[in-house]
Design a protein around this nucleic acid. Structure first.
Lengths: 149, 149
DNA sequence: TGTTTGTTCGCACGAGTTGCAGATTGGTAG
DNA sequence: CTACCAATCTGCAACTCGTGCGAACAAACA
């Protein structure tokens, strides 16, 4: 995703308007590597702008995704996550708490695939499932729940 | 997934009962490479057993998934698909019509990954997105819709 | 300042899935 | 064969995530 200033210019160039809601969301997403869900981003936004609606967050996220400024990541279960990192990368997710991290995989486009059966223009999307350092810790009071850390 | 006979034995061994509904679903899933959704399987089952309920189909699919007899495949949007093929493989999906096929990828477990950041016991799940042969055909009357073919 | 047009918001709705409870039925012991 | 108990089935309601809609609102611009 580009900087809030660049996005502002890009939105205006398309005849779209710059609202306080959009500016706030641009700022919250800028450099954000947390892969927030729409809901999570909404709560963060509501802290600064109590009247903002979840509907607007979804709307803006979809607009940004349509413009290619962010990627929507499906993590198997639970809500979609949004990723302002648009570089060529993949994801690792903790199956316990849902934490998502970016990972960079070399050679993913040159995998030997059998059974492609005529499918064209195929691009891989890799999700590594595992346990994050916090959840893997064997301590007894490791009682944290999903959506934390 | 094991054969219907083996599943029957496995269910009984766990104190679970063998009902006509379960037997039907075992049979419909045996060797099924269509990656059906719960809904799709329900329609197929209802053809042979008109009174069967969608709830029972979900229940049985979840039971089988819990037992490791089938995998639940998330394809980004739309309902989950269920895959009785439990061998080590991945999937290619047509982004137009939703067709899913099994693919076998060599070297997937030896990918060079950067940014894993302490994540443990990481296994990759690869979904290739592309267009199937039918959807890639440039013919003008290529007007088939999702869930067909 | 006024007009135009895109935006926001809240609500209702829709898809997919699960929880619940009463009726039903498989498995088994008598 | 009958009776019993626990597992199961079914239908419905509820839930989660996301979208459609329309009235009120506000950014951009003359």
């Amino acid at each position: 995703m580009r900087s809030p200033a660049d996005l502002t210019a890009a939105f205006r160039a398309q005849g779209l308007k710059i609202t306080p809601q959009r500016q706030l969301l641009f700022r919250l997403l800028d450099g954000n590597d947390q892969h927030p869900s729409a809901e999570a981003l909404f709560h963060q936004a509501a802290d600064e702008m109590p009247g903002i609606s979840l509907r607007t967050v979804y709307q803006t996220l979809n607009d940004l995704a349509d413009m290619g400024e962010l990627r929507q990541v499906s993590v198997g279960c639970g809500p979609s996550r949004f990723d302002p990192n648009t570089s060529d990368h993949h994801h690792v997710i903790c199956d316990r708490c849902g934490t998502v991290r970016d990972v960079y995989v070399s050679g993913a486009d040159n995998l030997a695939i059998e059974g492609l059966d005529g499918f064209a223009a195929v691009t891989p999307s890799i999700v590594f499932h595992g346990e994050c350092t916090v959840c893997a810790r064997p301590e007894p009071n490791n009682n944290h729940s999903p959506k934390e850390h």
